[in-house]
Nucleic acid binder design. Structure first.
Lengths: 236, 236
DNA sequence: ACGTTAGCACCTAGGTGATAAGCT
DNA sequence: AGCTTATCACCTAGGTGCTAACGT
């Protein structure tokens, strides 16, 4: 996990809103500043389990945050192409606030209401994929899974987890960073990464599920959630 | 896990016997050919759980091999020092036959007997530590554990496990390989690694435990073995 | 009220030796 | 007879949502 200092140029986390357009067939958005290094310019990313993400998104995805850190479900997983098989890349994720609002859930109407301005945002953290850095060929060989990533609401977390505010909305982002071997690579940092946003992965951070239909979908689709069934039981 | 082609120069696996001397305080043997690159020449390695290894070794350590692959217990773990914190290293293990004999266990005398010449050796495999390559600083930060390494007796294994002959004796070896960034690094391959052997980690490969005292010590010291107790139970 | 926390029962996933059956 | 294999019960380790208690 040799984290290089190539992250300054990532689009700042303090802005809201996500470029709205969505690439066809679940290809990630990558609206980028002008010119990019050829090692990243042809990179494309496909979101795995897209239909499951969309099912959650249509209900309003909620992700649990806990003091100890909680994994996301669905897990953010992507298939990569267009990397230089022999070049080194670092893969990472961060989370952008989708707006500057705080929400609360109205059980009677089963809907989210704005409850005021956002709470102060914790210092933005990033999560490096633990296999970083690795060759493009390695990254493309199989699905890249961020199943070690955990979300927490503990502002004092020292486990390196992603710190989020409960009852706030977030948009996960995925970044491919080319490890530039040139001596003065810092000067090209802004050219050496490419970022991807999948609108269907946005979610509300919560400490307990609010929408009961989200709970049910989690139980139905997450093997770790009790009551998982592969198919309809016979005697029901 | 980009496995570099730096492994030709590792001491050949076809010889028997291990340099007998043992470094004081569990420091690994590293009888090396002449000159070494400065990135490895000062590397030293300390075996973890040495007293447990010695306890097993005094009884005659046995390691289970299975078709599916079985972890070693004790796990081979080391503490490293003397690496260049900013340089890349690959860490790996291999296993040398300790002799060209086949053994069998005499239950009545509780001892091992030579049962003939060794069976044909499988092509020697190596196990790269899955965090490889990584910076020296990373390797030295904490204990390096080879708990993903598995032993098999399946000559056709395609899971990348270490293939051993049951009823044969082996000596684990540990190698530190400096990832030389020079263009013509192949020419210096023989200078860029350092190997370590801990005599107390040698073992007999078996498909089922032969010495009952080994079985008891495994049960007493491996948390995964049923009946593990941290201390003597009160009502015994 | 409303949101958070800790403990829990219940899962998945996988590492153990024991056992009995199978092989040569 | 000697060794290997498959299966099993029993562990560790850790990911779930639920619930009741807690806090503000």
């Amino acid at each position: 996990m040799g984290a290089p200092c190539l992250l300054g140029p990532l689009p700042a986390c303090g802005r809201f809103g996500v470029p709205a357009g969505e690439g066809a067939a679940g290809l990630g958005d990558s609206i980028q500043p002008a010119r990019k290094n050829q090692h990243v310019s042809n990179v494309s990313v496909q979101l795995e389990m897209r239909s499951l993400w969309e099912e959650f998104n249509s209900l309003g995805t909620e992700m649990i945050v806990t003091k100890a850190g909680r994994r996301m479900f669905p897990t953010f997983q992507v298939k990569l192409s267009g990397l230089d098989p022999l070049a080194d890349y670092v893969l990472l994720m961060d989370f952008m606030p989708l707006d500057d609002k705080r929400y609360r859930y109205a059980f009677h109407s089963s809907s989210w209401l704005v409850a005021g301005r956002a709470d102060p945002a914790a210092p933005g953290r990033v999560h490096f994929h633990p296999d970083s850095p690795a060759k493009g060929g390695q990254w493309m060989r199989q699905i890249v899974s961020f199943d070690k990533l955990k979300l927490t609401n503990n502002l004092l977390d020292d486990n390196g987890h992603i710190i989020l505010n409960s009852m706030h909305r977030y948009q996960p982002r995925f970044h491919v960073v080319y490890v530039d071997p040139r001596r003065d690579s810092e000067r090209f940092a802004h050219e050496n990464f490419k970022s991807f946003t999948f609108a269907e992965t946005q979610f509300m951070a919560v400490t307990a599920y609010q929408n009961h239909r989200i709970t049910q979908l989690k139980i139905a689709s997450n093997p770790f959630a009790k009551g998982f069934r592969d198919c309809e039981p016979d005697d029901w």
